[in-house]
Write a protein that binds this DNA or RNA. Structure first.
Length: 479
RNA sequence: GCCCUCGUCGUCUAACGGUCAGGACACCACUCUUUCAAGGUGGCAACGGGGGUUCGACUCCCCCCGAGGGCGCCA
């Protein structure tokens, strides 16, 4: 572990980091924070670092590290230094950096800038007046120690000071040191607390820019105090607005999927989610809204970041994802289709798999996410079960048995069984029968697909083949 | 309660003292059409409120209101 705080002059590159804590899946808001950090690093030719903030052993779990890394990779982000790729400032797990924290805390203790606090957990008084544990004499401390009380180490915030910092997005922000209070920096067992470990690590890793959620805005004065206490130069700070749900409240489970993992599972394209997220809180300044990752890197500017929280609009994401799907190269779309159908248990045989190239064009314009496909295309791979409501609405009219019988006769004669021959034949039949096209085609659609909305009927018939089509029509005739 | 941040159509946003306040999603029509989509055309729709500054304010200042964040031995 080396100290990179003062980088050699030749290495004055911009260095940014994303520092998730592995206590859950990667939240969509954190993903956007990561994305902006990454975009800025790439835009400026800087370094992007991934650091795992797993100091809270109670809440952290290794499996979350893995899914977070996966989510990030899936989105299309990469990092120059991090837990899996290593780097000159490692280790990149905070849980493996204890000696560095220890060393720093001892420094503060020795210089009288920190002290032991023996308050009951959660019982420390709110900021406003001097903390009662501040001025214990060594004798008192010894006495408290013999009582077996576990102390926490607190930073001794100087009183009566105005702490000002420049937020890259919001301008100057002022806090009074009284309001900040003496915050805890390390537990008795030596595990560092957030405000302390970020400062130690951001400095040790030579971080030049800290872009993080606005929920950290009021942590910044604490961290600044620490930078000053250590004599370190603080990085530049920029606090991003949070992402809200459609109703304007903070994005939560209640709003549906909140993790990147969930969007992946629901069949969203990473490039679409990336594009959408980039535009949620940032604007290129033009009216253009489709960008590749490379184009985003090129266009990204801090000045065009928004100040207010944005609401996550699933409808717009869906629309954008649909657009991306329609732009997919044919091969890619087919193999994506294949994958979801397989997952949905619909592909049982090579014969069924060979259908993919034929049904692909039918669904390209009909899905916005791959999650929809299984439900819409199931009739190509398994027998249909007609819902009672559709049965009643389309198949219970008295003319159905008669016309279906005629349809069977007509279709039976068609050879080859292709759309170009099916369509004119059936249209002729309908016209001869005196019925409206809808009165025949909709019931047929229901009989063949089990749905009242499907890709074009005659294409479906051709792909299914004469045998299946005739059988389905026959079994749908009510007796 | 204390502190901090934010405020343009329902939503994402453009505007950087002078525009009929523009675009996109959604929504509604129309079109295409065997259904559903996709596509095309058109429409509805916003500067939170009140004071200033200015010849002129969405743009600058103040107050109010509203929303969000923080005040952990979480991050």
């Amino acid at each position: 572990m080396q100290d990179r705080g003062s980088l050699p002059a030749g290495e004055r590159k911009v260095r940014l980091r994303f520092a998730p804590s592995p206590t859950g899946l990667l939240h969509i808001g954190n993903a956007r924070t990561a994305l902006y950090n990454w975009l800025f690093a790439r835009h400026t030719g800087g370094i992007f670092i991934l650091r795992i903030e797993d100091t809270d052993v109670q809440r952290s779990a290794p499996e979350f590290v893995e899914t977070i890394l996966n989510s990030l990779h899936w989105l299309g982000l990469d990092w120059d230094e991090g837990p899996d790729v290593g780097g000159p400032c490692g280790p990149y797990f905070q849980s493996q950096r204890k000696p560095l924290y220890q060393e720093h805390v001892e420094r503060l203790l020795k210089e009288g800038k920190a002290y032991f606090c023996y308050c009951e957990p959660g019982q420390a008084p709110k900021p406003g007046k001097p903390h009662p544990c501040r001025d214990y004499t060594p004798k008192e401390i010894k006495a408290l120690k013999t009582q077996g009380l576990k102390p926490v180490i607190r930073f001794k915030t100087p009183m009566g000071e105005q702490i000002r910092f420049h937020d890259r997005l919001r301008g100057d922000v002022d806090f009074l040191s009284e309001e900040v209070g003496d915050f805890s920096i390390m537990k008795e067992d030596g595990s560092p607390l957030y405000n302390f470990s970020v400062v130690v690590d951001d400095h040790a890793m030579g971080i030049t820019h800290v872009f993080r959620g606005e929920d950290h805005l009021s942590n910044t004065p604490k961290q600044l105090l620490l930078y000053r206490a250590f004599g370190y130069e603080p990085p530049e700070f920029l606090h991003l607005p949070l992402i809200h749900g459609e109703d304007g409240t903070p994005l939560s489970k209640r709003h549906g999927a909140t993790s990147v993992e969930a969007y992946r599972a629901r069949g969203y394209l990473p490039s679409a989610l990336f594009n959408f997220l980039a535009l949620l809180g940032w604007s290129p300044g033009s009216e253009r809204e489709f960008f590749s990752r490379e184009e985003l890197i090129q266009a990204f500017q801090l000045e065009r970041l928004h100040h207010s929280p944005a609401r996550f609009s699933l409808k717009k994401l869906n629309w954008m994802n649909g657009k991306y799907i329609r732009q997919m190269p044919r091969q890619e779309f087919e193999s994506a289709l294949c994958k979801v159908l397989q997952k949905g248990g619909l592909l049982q045989s090579p014969a069924q798999e060979s259908l993919i190239p034929r049904i692909a064009p039918l669904f390209l314009e009909r899905i916005e996410t791959f999650g929809e496909i299984a439900e819409k295309a199931d009739f190509f791979f398994q027998e249909v079960k007609i819902p009672p409501t559709l049965q009643k609405k389309y198949l219970s009219n008295p003319h159905i048995p008669v016309i279906f019988q005629q349809v069977l006769e007509v279709l039976n004669l068609i050879e080859p069984f292709i759309r170009e021959k099916i369509e004119p034949a059936l249209r002729q039949l309908v016209s001869d029968s005196g019925l409206k096209t809808q009165e025949v085609f909709q019931p047929l659609r229901v009989a063949i697909t089990g749905k009242d909305a499907s890709p074009p009927l005659f294409d479906c018939m051709e792909i299914l083949g004469k045998e299946k089509v005739l059988r389905r029509i026959r079994t749908a005739i009510p007796y």
